[in-house]
Amino acid sequence: MAVDTSVKIGEWQLANPIMTASGTFGYGEEFRPFVDLSALGAIVVKGISLNPRPGNPPPRVVETASGMLNAIGLQNVGVDRFISEKMPMIRRLGAQVVVNILGDSLEDYQQLAAKLDHVEGIAAIEVNISCPNVKKGGVAYGTDPAMAARVTEVVARASSRPVIIKLSPNVTDITVIARAVEGAGATAISLINTLIGMAIDIRSGQPKLANIMGGLSGPAIKPVALRMVYQVASTVKIPVIGIGGITTLEDVIEFMMAGATAVQIGTANFVNPAISGELVTGLGRYLQDSGRKAATELIGCVKI
């Protein structure tokens, strides 16, 4: 008997729980030689702001033990060019597409959500309130529960689609922020964004990133991410999407057992561009082999 791999984020049904994380999958097109994009649960495209952003000066990336630091600085073409130039191409990919948005003010978020609401071919909106790389805005919204709730309210009102709020791990108690955005109307919560980190070149005595600090991602952060997903999934009733160093099928299953309804694959796409498709196949086989009827049986099944 066929296994049901589908999961639901609000009213939105995904064929399976495997998504790709914003900023690690370009606009999808780049991965076409390696992945059947229509077979993925969804893809989340590179974060979009109201106006184009050039991003940070180089060096922007540096490898660390089982991970990497990045300070890309949210380089993007801006929402108008995204709609006119990128969306026609994205619609042809045949994938479920989530658009990630980021702003410096409530007005930015409101306008972004409103502009995108008229655009066809978007399944959901993910709101980045957590990027550590932009000095104003980004951090504040993700670390203050009242601010996080206001952004959620503004986007949820301006958008007719599911609204996913992406949380920062760089807070004292993530469950406080999670409860705030749930109360403000979020459809789902995705977590974690990168952990703020740093690396120094001891020969030059300078930071390895021009931005001094950057976001740590990759297998190094997985235990922290898993813990936060468990905490948040135990706190809120809305679906949680797990992100953070997911590289193997075992990682996917762990996050779902901890309470994630779906997961996003990030840095692993850089190491193996075919990984997201391989995990879809692997998960289906695992469910079959372990005698389960549906992927949803895994969600939150950790025995405490």
């Binding site: 690690t24 370009g26 180089p58 922007r60 380089q75 850089f270």
Partner: peptide, 27 residues
């Protein structure tokens, strides 16, 4: 340069172009 993905997804392997200040052409 330093690179993470090599295929245009991470936008990490930037080189600044002196004299180009417009957002679109700076890197």
């Amino acid at each position: 340069t330093m690179m993470a993905c090599g295929m245009g997804a991470c936008l990490g392997c930037t080189v600044q172009r002196p004299g180009f200040d417009e957002t679109e052409k700076k890197y």
